[in-house]
Amino acid sequence: MNKISISWNKLKKYSGLWVAIAEEEILASGRSLEEVMKKVEASGKKAEVFQVPLGEEAYILVLAFAFDF
């Protein structure tokens, strides 16, 4: 499972969307994971699928606690 390398310059126009990348190219994109996976499965290719972060968001990620109310 090697990391598929793709530059932010190629990804940034997909900010907020789901994308599938295969062979270092965008294979599919969409607002829902379901629609993207339909395109991936139709292609027969193995793709890495994720949401493209919003460039302007500041990621200070803290998820330290879990409350069971």
Binding site: K3, K46, E48, F50, Y59, L61, V62, L63, A64, F65
Partner: peptide, 20 residues
């Protein structure tokens, strides 16, 4: 499901979008 994730040492649990 092949994807990518931000490794977050401050997070107790891994967390994923419900669509996954």
């Amino acid at each position: 499901f092949l994807t990518r994730a931000y490794v977050d040492s401050g997070a107790t649990f891994s967390i994923f979008n419900a669509e996954i």
